[in-house]
């Protein structure tokens, strides 16, 4: 299985340019990063790193979607985050010197750039903007985690599902000719249930409820949002 020949080797050619933590470096610095990084393609289901294993460095998602999951003591997987292009993975473990705290698995064909720990720490010392961007990212991650924790206890399954759909609408929505938006990410019902912290059966039932209210359309496994505003109104009504 050869790598795709058209993998973006240069940071300046990256389709996620402008979204990552290194993107606002000068051209010469980006060229240097391009020399040091390792670019790999991952197929759906392939793992990037495994929870509990030692950390090698930082991963930057150029294309694709990655699910981060944690395994409980009884072997159940819970999805803690979906990372998409421009996101970084493994950054916390670099600073804490602890093993990876989640397993990263490709949800679809993904292109991921890797920079080893030694190089990253060197870059942080040389370029304050890299350090600042990482701090910003860590702060946002912490905020999102706290919000998620609060949501689990305070919001209904329906609210959490609608909010997930709105999030996916924003990050993975593809406008259709008729004005609706197709959510273009391959998530199973089980994975969606895991993200919002409910049983798969409950998720399926709630999706069906939303469909009956004409808030979403289901086309096989695909989810289409006819009108984002109506969905937003529904979640507001629930509060």
């Amino acid at each position: 299985m050869a790598q795709k020949k058209d993998l973006p080797q240069e940071c300046k050619d990256c389709p996620s340019r402008g979204k990552g933590i290194f993107c606002d470096l000068e051209a010469a610095e980006l060229d240097e990063i391009s020399q040091f990084k390792v670019v790999n393609q991952f197929k759906r289901g392939q793992s990037i790193f495994v929870e509990g294993n030692p950390t090698f460095g930082l991963y930057c998602i150029s294309e694709g979607n990655i699910k981060l999951s944690k395994t409980s003591e009884d072997g159940k997987d819970a999805i803690v985050r979906i990372a998409t292009k421009g996101d970084v993975l493994g950054h916390r473990s670099i600073f804490t010197n602890t093993p990876y705290n989640a397993t990263a698995t490709a949800l679809d064909d993904s292109v991921i750039c890797f920079l080893d720990k030694k190089y990253i720490l060197k870059k942080i010392q040389e370029s304050p903007s890299v350090a600042q961007n990482i701090i910003n990212k860590l702060s946002r991650d912490l905020g999102a985690s706290e919000q998620r924790l609060a949501d689990m206890s305070q919001k209904s399954v329906k609210q959490r599902l609608i909010e997930l759909l709105l999030l996916l609408h924003q990050s993975h929505g593809i406008p259709q000719d008729n004005g609706s938006v197709l959510i273009d990410i391959k998530l199973t019902r089980e994975e969606m249930a895991s993200i919002i912290g409910t049983a798969t059966e409950t998720l399926i039932r709630t999706l069906s409820d939303l469909k009956n209210l004409d808030l979403i359309t289901l086309d096989g496994k695909k989810i289409i949002i006819p009108d984002e505003k109506k969905l937003l109104e529904e979640v507001t009504l629930e509060y």
Partner: peptide, 12 residues
């Protein structure tokens, strides 16, 4: 864990 898949470049 898979360190690298066939067709990939090792990280270290």
């Amino acid at each position: 864990a898979t360190l690298f898949y066939k067709g990939q470049i090792p990280l270290t």
